[in-house]
Write a protein that binds this DNA or RNA. Structure first.
Lengths: 214, 214
DNA sequence: GACGGCCCCTGACAAATGTCACGGTCGGGG
DNA sequence: CCCCGACCGTGACATTTGTCAGGGGCCGTC
């Protein structure tokens, strides 16, 4: 377990971002057991990541994807831009192929799903800090298989808006488009996802991580 | 903070059940910091709860609702039946009103959402162990407001099956009912939930926790 | 400049969905 | 006993949804 009196001279400084306070605190406790790691910041919203990182200058940031304010991927990009020295390790619930792709494009160094064994987390942090990449091989394979989103920008937007479950008229109003156009976009999305329903199309797109912001 | 050499004589014995190994391990680390608590078992599936509890005889079981094998509510009921001495504290991601109701009916002593501050968890465990009830007051109010599910058994079943997103014909085939009957049940569910869609009805029912098993 | 991709719109059509009125079975409670 | 509610089914109907064939406008690239 943790050293008693011998503090590490230069421990790895960590920032934790997760919207669930309980798991955030629990992760902090888990990582604090390692004598070469120290948690210097905790935030619960994506838009707090960069300001807090500026204040505390962490070496590695552990970011959840699902967060209010700003999703973890966007936060990762912003963080890379603001503090290039800080590495990013995504820690997320869902192993959506698209998430991994977007995270890597955003400059993340690692991607860990929340059902990996707890003991491996500290090692992942160390690897990332050392400049290595950490990726679940299974997930990487899926990502290659799923490929880039076939949906056009408008189609994703329509699909994302349709997630809440409104009628075509609602969508048309919300997006300032004609109902026919909405139907066309939906039809295209249904075709591209191989679904038979609007609902199915949404499910498929969601599972592949094709419905992220922007 | 943990005591160094002075182990508590009779620490509270805990069982942890959560399907995400990482948060499970993290929670274990968090709770292990308290000198009057000790984690004696960890499981990742609902149907492993009772066997493992039989083996380790915990005082308090922390159960997640979303788990493979057997959902946390059912696991709680089974655990109460098998080991009445063991108290149950539900720890879950979603504060669905129906979840709380069902958990209480299943004999749980406490209900904590995963975005409560980490420091409060140990206290919740102690309270539950002492025979008290632990419930988020906001959630309790919502539960009262949402009331019991207005859906009849068949309607819930149809709605739950419809979640996967199939056509009426699919549902009819899966449930061995006529398409007309399926449509009737769906229509009734849509009316009762105040939705305008099948999709909306599913969302509402899900948010209220009306779609749980059995 | 021609081409292709994406975008927006229209209109029309078939299919799926949601609603309604109706009948019938079964079990429990007044 | 009779009524009520949940349940299953039918058939007909209006609405919504999904599809298709067009028509433009706006970039980019070849």
């Amino acid at each position: 377990m943790s050293g008693l009196g011998d503090e590490q001279p230069n421990p790895i400084r960590l920032l934790l971002a997760d919207d669930q306070a309980l798991v955030r605190g629990a992760l902090a406790a888990l990582l604090a057991l390692e004598e070469d790691l120290t948690v210097v910041a905790e935030v619960g919203r994506g838009d707090e990541v960069v300001p807090e990182a500026r204040r505390t200058a962490p070496d590695v940031a552990l970011l959840d994807v699902e967060m209010p304010g700003l999703d973890g991927i966007a936060a990762a990009a912003a963080l890379r831009a603001a503090l290039p020295a800080c590495r990013v390790l995504m820690v997320t619930t869902f192993g959506r192929p698209g998430y991994l792709r977007r995270a890597m494009e955003a400059g993340a160094s690692g991607f860990v799903v929340k059902d990996t064994p707890a003991r491996q987390l500290a090692d992942a942090v160390r690897r990332v800090h050392a400049g290595l990449r950490v990726v679940d091989p299974t997930l990487a394979a899926e990502t290659l298989a799923a490929g880039v989103s076939p949906l056009t920008e408008r189609e994703t937007e329509v699909l994302r808006t349709a997630r809440s479950g409104g009628t075509v008229a609602d969508l048309a109003g919300a997006l300032h488009l004609s109902e026919g156009t909405i139907r066309n976009h939906l039809s295209a999305a249904i075709g591209k996802t191989g679904a038979r329903n609007r609902a199915e199309a949404i499910r498929v797109a969601e599972q592949n991580g094709w419905l992220l912001g922007e």
